[in-house]
């Protein structure tokens, strides 16, 4: 049995195909762009190809992410909060707290042993202190996004950013450079600002080990190191962390497919 989860995020769309074991057997990641339905379909098709399967082999698809209602071929939609919680516990079964820093929002989630959401907090509707902030830094410094973390880790004397506002990020970064500060010091300052804000959100739901870091920003080594320092806890990061929402969605899809197979009806805890 194959199932799939499609996570239509603000920046990137991720799709995962999972077998009944459950194990991830196919994945894809593309830029979301402006056409959400097409992005969802394309990501799904690519993940199915990656799994060496055909779309008709997939018994159930669940959409998640801010564009989840555009996964029109999906059976249902589940929010990314529930999906990241479920996916994090799948990747790291002892997870109690999840931090998901995505393109335009940050979520702190406290989870139960079965991936149930016990509590969650999100940033305000503005994108201050989210992945978008790193995107603004990348543009201002004319550096690829993937270089930001490694370069920040070489810093010795980080600047103290006064804002996490994405709109003001560029002017502040340029201001520090104009004062003669090194690029890596500015970058580390940017990372500290985001990490501090993320940890204060995490405190709202309670910081307890194990903490699992998910979302696109979890691939940034500087962020992982700073979060470990600020929480005084090791941070779980998986190669699959970026796909965590899609993994959670595919687990919900698997619930539905198994329930249907067992009872001849759609089911699962969530609608």
């Amino acid at each position: 049995m194959l199932v799939a989860g499609v996570d239509v995020g603000s920046t990137q769309t991720k799709a995962v195909v999972m077998d009944g074991e459950p194990k991830v057997v196919g994945r894809s990641l593309i830029e979301t762009g402006a056409r959400l339905t097409e992005a969802a379909q394309e990501a799904f098709s690519l993940a199915v190809v990656d799994a060496g399967a055909e779309e008709r082999d997939v018994a159930s698809v669940v959409g998640t992410g801010y564009g989840r209602y555009r996964v029109e071929f999906g059976e249902t939609q589940v929010t990314e909060i529930s999906c990241h919680a479920r996916g994090a516990v799948f990747l790291f079964p002892n997870t109690t707290s999840v931090l998901d820093v995505g393109g335009q929002d940050t979520k702190a989630i406290r989870v139960g042993g079965d991936g149930q959401v016990l509590d969650f907090c999100m940033n305000d509707k503005c994108s201050a202190g989210t992945g978008r902030f790193l995107g603004a830094a990348s543009q201002a410094l004319e550096l690829p996004l993937g270089d930001l973390g490694p370069l920040a880790l070489t810093a010795k004397n980080p600047v103290k950013m006064t804002t996490t506002c994405t709109v003001f990020a560029e002017s502040e970064i340029l201001g520090w450079l104009a004062l003669g500060r090194k690029m890596e010091d500015v970058l580390l300052g940017v990372h500290v600002a985001i990490a501090s804000r993320s940890v204060s959100l995490l405190r709202r739901v309670g910081i307890e080990p194990e903490i699992t870091f998910t979302g696109g920003v979890s691939r940034n080594a500087a962020m992982v190191k700073l979060l470990e320092e600020l929480t005084d806890c090791p941070i779980n990061v998986s190669e699959e962390s970026h796909y965590c929402g899609a993994i959670g969605a595919s687990l919900y899809a698997l619930d539905r497919a198994l329930t249907r197979a067992a009872a001849g009806a759609s089911g699962g805890v969530l609608p």
């Binding site: 909060i81 509707k125 969530l270």
Partner: peptide, 23 residues
Amino acid sequence: WSDAQMKNRIDAFFEALASRKAA
């Protein structure tokens, strides 16, 4: 008012309540 953001948070809250009741 930001409809998508309100809906996302409210949906997630009800999903958590559903899981809680099921548990």
